[in-house]
């Protein structure tokens, strides 16, 4: 009986490991990929590798100005939804003013960073995966390697850098949009004055909340860039492979963003922040 249970558990674990390996594209390959990024970053810093400035500027523009409107729209609505849900409950206790606390802390600590990351995973993460997978299937990546170029420095580092730099900036706009959404609902539905709402928000929004949100957005940017590039470069060299890489990149990015957010929440709780 014990042997049977052991064999079953081993079989389940082996199947899970095989599925995980297939999903990740192979752990050895993943470790090699992760290892190449800091090496390529050092090579770029020491000018041993070329940095594609035009490509970097193009990607940065796609991640920033062209994504701003959707980030603002989503976060405005999230702020409004939080205020609406909070208003209904808090009004029962005559604590309507605390909707500013709910919206402010939720947006600044959690939702602005997470929702911006989700939008960027679906937008830029997917675009990175699709572009690199298409380059892979068109042998463009092979052409770079034949020239002796550092493909991680040329293709991966600029994309990760663009998202890592831009996501905190988008986070600032996301916070402002979320707080505005909350303000609109609070003043429109609950008859709170604008000055009362803003005074309350200014009182509760202390620096650590912003620090946590901004730190998260930096990590999320890195993670989304990494995931998009990984699935793009490990895609199979077919048209279906491009679609599959894009789907996997978006799903994996969102899952990892949520997981990382949970880790941040636990760490912040443990540190008493």
């Amino acid at each position: 009986m014990a042997v049977q249970v052991s064999e079953t558990v081993t079989g389940v674990l082996a199947a899970a490991q095989a599925r995980l390996s297939a999903w990740l594209g192979g752990p050895e390959e993943a470790i090699t990929f992760l290892g190449r990024i800091p090496l390529s970053a050092v090579a770029l810093c020491t000018r041993r590798a070329r940095f594609p400035w035009p490509d970097f500027l193009r990607v940065t523009l796609q991640c920033s100005a062209q994504a701003l409107l959707i980030v603002i729209a989503v976060n405005l609505l999230v702020g409004a939804i939080l205020a609406f849900v909070g208003a209904v409950q808090l009004n029962k206790f005559g604590a309507g003013i605390y909707v500013a606390d709910l919206v402010g802390i939720s947006m600044v600590r959690e939702m602005a960073a997470v929702m911006t990351a989700v939008v960027m995973a679906g937008r830029s993460g997917a675009a990175f995966a699709a572009e690199l997978a298409t380059m892979q299937s068109n042998e463009e990546v092979d052409a770079l390697e034949v020239l002796g170029m550092d493909t991680a420095a040329w293709l991966v580092v600029p994309r990760i850098l663009a998202l890592t730099v831009i996501l905190p900036l988008l986070y600032v706009f996301a916070c402002a949009a979320g707080l505005l959404g909350g303000l609109l609902v609070a003043t429109g539905m609950m008859n709170l004055s604008e000055s009362a709402y803003l005074d309350r928000s200014a009182l509760i929004l202390i620096t650590p909340h912003f620090a946590i949100g901004a730190t998260k957005s930096v990590c999320f940017g890195f993670l989304i860039g990494l995931t998009g590039c990984w699935y793009g470069l490990t895609a199979s060299r077919t048209a279906a492979g491009v679609g599959e890489a894009t789907t996997r990149a978006v799903v994996a990015s969102i899952v990892w963003v949520i997981v990382l957010d949970a880790v941040f929440a636990l760490c912040a709780h443990a540190l008493g922040v």
Partner: peptide, 13 residues
């Protein structure tokens, strides 16, 4: 070595 790939592999950007 100079290489001509089957798909030409010109960098599209």
């Amino acid at each position: 070595c100079g290489m001509l790939f089957q798909s030409a592999a010109l960098w599209s950007s």
